[in-house]
């Protein structure tokens, strides 16, 4: 059975005492903790798959969250192919996933 769309996401389970910032994930604003990573923002936004694989174009999503797997690649503030799990968010950060094109 083939899926029409994907709704896989993370939720905030622990309230943060630190401040919130707003980032854009694929143009949609989302409030995140100021000490979250860009990959966390992608998972909170459910913006999956964030990329298609380079060879077959199959859907991919953040996998290791520690900088090893290169599955969380996204364009961050105009710079392509960033490891989103290693980048701290900043207010107004623009995160663009590569849903449509293999990376």
């Amino acid at each position: 059975m083939s899926q029409e769309s994907l709704d896989i996401r993370f939720r905030r389970a622990v309230r943060r005492a630190t401040g919130e910032v707003t980032v854009e994930v694929d143009g949609r604003p989302i409030a995140v903790g100021e000490e979250d990573t860009a990959a966390a923002a992608i998972l909170l936004a459910g913006a999956l798959p964030n990329r298609l694989s380079a060879v077959s174009g199959s859907p991919r999503a953040p996998y290791c969250m520690m900088g090893a797997c290169f599955e969380c690649l996204a364009e961050i503030d105009g710079v392509p192919l960033q490891q989103a799990c290693l980048v701290q968010v900043a207010d107004g950060m623009r995160i663009r996933t590569a849903k449509g094109s293999p990376t």
Partner: peptide, 18 residues
């Protein structure tokens, strides 16, 4: 998508409370 390492989920919880 939706498959990740247990360590990855733990990282999200530890670092961001997700």
């Amino acid at each position: 998508p939706g498959v990740m390492t247990a360590g990855a989920a733990q990282s999200m919880l530890k670092a961001s409370g997700l």
